[in-house]
Simulated scan of single mutants.
Amino acid sequence: MATPRFLQPTGFHSELKNRINQYFKDRGTSPTGNYKLYTKAVILVASLLFLYVHLVFFTPATWLALVECVLLGGVTAAIGFNIMHDGGHGSFSKKKWLNELAGLSLNVMGANIFMWTTKHNVIHHTYTNIDGVDDDLDARPFLRLCENQKRLGIHRYQHFYFWGAYSMLYIYWIFFTDYVKYFTQKVGDIPLKKMKRSEHISFWAFKVQHFLMFVVVPIYMVGFLPWLVGFLVYGMFTGLVLSIVFQLAHTVEDAHFPVACEQTNKIEDEWAIHQLRTTANFATKNKVVSWLTGGLNFQIEHHLFPKISHVHYPEISKIIKQTCAEYKIPYIEYAKTRTAIASHISHLRYLAKAA
């Protein structure tokens, strides 16, 4: 399908950008990461290395190994949220090479930053919650995430089994969907930009590195069956955490799923208002959730200003919320994580029954 267009921007977006720019100007600070982010990055990378080395080379008792596999999955997701995500958006640092290095953490963990940049930065951030364009909405045939998608018999129970589907995201991503994108050179129906030779080399070199690090070496050190159990526990917990955080941002009861006008192929809102209608925050007062998720519980702030590091979201959220109130534009927010999860389950249950 042809990508839809948005209405011309109004004064709201301009006023919002002016206020955010003034915020950083008044404080004389950069919108990119700071010492808080870099300290967190060191802690997360050191934690991953410790857990990996202890699991693979020191073979702890079974119960402890399983606990450490869960922790390793949580740390992997946290590196994605905090380091890779900011790096991929160019907000980790003012230095380009540091952003690229942070983004490459995704490659080390088995996925690919080139594919992710097109899927996430270009498509998802532009066409959020537009079925047929936003690839994040495509969980078919297992899940129906919006009314525009065809309802299958299996979807009748999706609000029960979605936990299992989400837990397979990471494994499915690194061993299947990356290769589909690579060989078709598309994300859904949208072509990737032409890959350079260095990007082809990077794709395969990091895939081999990941296979050696997370498959070959562990099997050699602990045996096939212990590796298989450990890897499944690790990979499924990673996938569950990644899925839940991203789904709470867009597939909840209050979020919209716009459809372009058939005659004009236009969305009824300008881009900034579209982001506010399709995106939700959750648990923004919870500092532990904010720290672990890399500020992705401030999803509204991230979608409106993706080049601002997540360490600034708590402060700029006050400006955005106030501006939305003045312009009478909705600002979707759930006070707690469990409230957002309940809303997501209700959304899935509604789609399970609705024709």
Score class of each variant (00 low, 15 high):
Asn121Gln: 11
Lys285Trp: 02
Thr339Gln: 12
Glu15Asn: 15
Thr337Lys: 02
Asn112Thr: 07
Ala280Gly: 02
Phe231Glu: 07
Leu248Tyr: 08
Asn129Glu: 03
Asn286Lys: 03
Val216Ser: 08
Ala283Met: 07
Ile320Gly: 05
Gly74Val: 00
Leu51Arg: 06
Gly239Thr: 09
Tyr331Ile: 07
Gly74Gln: 11
Gly74Pro: 00
Ile20Phe: 04
Ile190Pro: 03
Pro191Ile: 10
Ser198Cys: 03
Pro141Ala: 04
Ser317Tyr: 06
Ser343Met: 00
Tyr334Arg: 07
Gly295Glu: 08
Ile130His: 01
Leu304Trp: 06
Phe206Ile: 05
Leu104Met: 14
Ser14Tyr: 11
Glu301Tyr: 02
Leu101Ala: 14
Val122Thr: 10
Tyr350Arg: 15
Ile345Pro: 05
Lys321Glu: 15
Tyr161Met: 08
Leu248His: 12
Gly87Glu: 07
Asp131Val: 01
Gln158Pro: 05
Leu44Arg: 05
Trp291Thr: 13
Ala46Met: 11
Tyr38Thr: 10
His210Cys: 12
Pro141Leu: 03
Asp131Cys: 01
Asp189His: 14
Leu292Ser: 03
Leu232Gln: 12
Asp26Ala: 08
Phe231Cys: 01
Ala280Ser: 15
Phe183Pro: 10
Asp178Trp: 05
Phe214Pro: 01
Ser343Asn: 02
Glu301Val: 12
Leu55Asn: 14
Cys146Leu: 04
Phe224Ala: 11
Phe50Val: 09
His256Thr: 09
Asp86Leu: 05
Cys146Trp: 05
Ser167Gly: 11
Ala335Pro: 05
Asn121His: 01
Leu351Lys: 11
Lys40Ile: 02
Arg5His: 13
